[in-house]
């Protein structure tokens, strides 16, 4: 099986058989989209919620909004049907216990909120998620059946 590594501010799309993984999500969010019929899988590692708030926004995979659009397009190009897509997400942790209501420090929450809003906007059902808390997560998305593994340091491993 091909193993494809998705870096920080990066997204990849592949057909089965393949495993897409992104390592050590912290406050970033891993967005996994999957079409079970065509077995096309997509994984994005986004860092920020909204490209329209930034001047430096050329890197589409860096932002939840632009990554979502690009990933849906790339998946359709590989044979996925937009209406069959479903989503699983992980990440959005607050790695350091800043005692602050400062929005900058709540970036994990804001990444998750933006992702949920976008999924709703594109009518993609969210079938599983594990977000928030204060620890890092490595995720693996399997294109053969859409299963989504989460691995942590000291907080167990799970399959969604």
């Amino acid at each position: 099986m091909t193993k494809i590594i998705v870096g920080m501010a990066d997204l990849k799309v592949e057909r089965a058989p393949a495993m897409l993984t992104t390592l050590g999500l912290g406050s970033c969010v891993g967005i996994a989209l999957y079409d079970p019929a065509s077995k096309v899988a997509g994984l994005a590692h986004i860092m920020l919620p909204d490209s329209t708030k930034m001047q430096n926004n050329q890197n589409l995979a860096k932002f939840a909004d632009t990554a979502m659009v690009k990933m849906i397009q790339d998946m359709a190009a590989k044979g996925a049907n937009k209406t069959r897509l479903r989503a699983k997400i992980a990440g959005g942790a607050q790695m350091f216990a800043f005692n602050s209501k400062n929005d900058d420090m709540r970036i994990g929450d804001r990444n998750v909120e933006a992702t949920l809003r976008l999924l709703k906007q594109y009518s993609i059902p969210l079938v599983a998620y594990e977000v928030g808390a204060n620890y890092g997560r490595t995720v693996e998305l399997y294109a053969d059946d859409g299963r989504f593994l989460i691995k942590t340091i000291g907080h167990g491993n799970r399959e969604l």
Binding site: M8, L25, G26, S27, M47, M95, F96, I107, Y135, G136
Partner: peptide
Amino acid sequence: MLAIDMANALLSVPAIEFGK
């Protein structure tokens, strides 16, 4: 503030700040 975790997860915090 201290955290012990995977390098990427810790680095995501300054990386996001630079990412802006």
